[in-house]
Computed example of a mutant assay.
Amino acid sequence: MPAMADGRREAMRGPSPGTETKPSVLTTEFWIYLAAVGGVLLASLLVGQNAAGVDTFRAHSAWFMITLLTIGYLGSRGLAKAGSNWRTGAERKDRH
């Protein structure tokens, strides 16, 4: 499409296609994150005590694992959101 000085080119293009990322609840990583958190909590509950009567997977360990999972999940969402606002390389080149 030829460049037009008065900005009509952008108007002719139509609405922007939006971002390339989906809302978080529609992603597989969100559901895997929730399953992993549930698994950690369930494991913490079910592991119980060793032969000496000591709880081998205490609450602080479980919450530490959940914190690590959360950091990983937030990092992956941040990387997904760091992508461009366009869906294809052609759209990126056309905008510049």
Rank of each mutant, 00 (worst) to 15 (best):
R9M: 08
G53E: 06
T70S: 06
V47S: 12
L46I: 13
M65W: 13
G48Q: 05
G89K: 03
A80C: 09
V40E: 11
L68E: 06
A3V: 15
W63C: 01
T19G: 02
L68F: 10
S16K: 07
S61N: 11
S61G: 09
L74W: 05
H60I: 06
S76D: 02
E10W: 15
N50C: 02
A43H: 13
W63L: 08
V54G: 05
A62D: 01
A51V: 13
I66Q: 04
R9N: 14
T67I: 04
P15V: 02
M4D: 15
I71H: 00
N50Q: 04
F64G: 06
L74K: 02
G78F: 12
F64W: 12
W31L: 00
D6M: 05
A52M: 10
A59K: 03
T67A: 11
W86I: 00
S16M: 04
M4K: 12
G38P: 00
A3T: 14
T21M: 01
T56L: 11
L45D: 15
K81I: 11
G14Y: 15
F57A: 05
V25N: 11
D94W: 15
L41F: 12
H96R: 11
R58E: 13
R95S: 06
G75F: 08
G83D: 08
G83S: 09
G18S: 10
A36N: 05
T70N: 01
K93R: 10
S61Y: 08
V25E: 13
A5M: 08
A80V: 12
T88Y: 07
A82W: 11
A62Q: 02
R87F: 13
Y73C: 01
Y73Q: 01
A90F: 07
L26T: 11
L26H: 07
L45W: 15
R9H: 12
W63D: 00
G75R: 03
W86Y: 15
A5S: 09
W63N: 00
T28C: 01
Y73M: 03
G14C: 08
F30P: 02
W63Q: 00
P23C: 01
R95T: 07
D94E: 15
A11E: 14
V25A: 08
I32H: 04
I32Y: 03
A62I: 05
R8H: 13
M12C: 11
G53D: 03
L69M: 01
R92C: 13
V37T: 10
G48K: 07
F64D: 07
A59R: 04
K81W: 13
S76A: 06
P2V: 06
M1V: 15
V47T: 15
V47M: 14
N85R: 10
S16W: 13
D6H: 09
A36Y: 01
M12R: 10
E29S: 04
G75I: 02
P15D: 02
A80N: 12
Y33M: 03
I32F: 02
H96N: 14
K93C: 05
A82S: 15
S24E: 06
R87S: 12
L26S: 10
L34W: 04
H60L: 06
W31F: 00
Q49D: 10
F30Y: 15
R77E: 05
S76P: 02
Y33N: 01
G83Y: 01
G14K: 10
L74E: 12
S16V: 03
A11F: 14
W86G: 00
S84H: 09
G39L: 06
P23R: 03
T88K: 03
A36E: 07
G18W: 10
A43W: 14
L45C: 14
M4Y: 15
D94P: 03
